[in-house]
Amino acid sequence: MLAFIRRTVVGVIAAACLSSVALAQQTTNTFDEIIKRGKIIVGISLSTPPYGMTDANMKPSGFDVAVANLIARDLGVKLEIVDQVSQARIPNLTTGKVDIVISSLGITAERAKAIMYTNSIYVDEQMIIAPTASKLDNLEALVGKRVGVTRASTNDTIITQKAVQGTNIQRFEDDASTNQALFTGQVDAIVSGVAAANAINAQTDKFARKFAVRQSPMGIGVRRGDYDLHQWLNTEIMMLWSGGELQAAQKQWLGIVNEDVPRF
């Protein structure tokens, strides 16, 4: 029995090693493959307005979708959008389920260990939003207050890092729930991007931006090692910027136009 188990384990490990070698060898060039199949598969979360959402006819729309459309147009291929929940954004990319991820993906050094980022397509500012009457002007003022944030977003990362001891951070599943918590008074303030703040102000003026916590550049996620695709996308972003099309998409969907986007 023991020998059998040992044989099985050795067999499985050997098979895994062999197949991972095979996988490494067959690593095709994603850029060539996109052109060959005439279609780019882009991962976008459709539950993150105004980046990814659905229009009145339930078709994908938003800033991320607009950028994806421009990229597909300039590659001369069809666009296929794969809806993804936020925790599937990086696994979908690393396991090859999608070619690239344009999904309000904030750039962090931690995430950059798993995937490659293109140059930034938008720089968001992470704000504290609270009832207009409240006096929450800095991080110290948040001590003892309930601060709502969307789980696993860069908003979550930054407030977790910067919050003064004693701040009560409450995490919600998505932006709609975070905003709803603010509207119903379950939290005293929320951390959110400028675009989301604009969206809230479009509905009501009972809530206002208090102060900025940090700038948050967003990029397109590419699989590690896909240098051809990475280089093409950076070229494309530069061209879209100098042609003013990226700014137009920012204006249309986010209501703000960056003065410049950081490049590296």
């Binding site: 459709l46 659905t54 809806d83 979908n92 932006d175």
Partner: peptide, 17 residues
């Protein structure tokens, strides 16, 4: 990546608030 009932609810909830 399957857009089943709960996911549609999430998407609609985020489009309508």
């Amino acid at each position: 990546g399957i857009v089943e009932l709960t996911r549609t609810a999430q998407i609609v909830s985020n489009a309508t608030f």
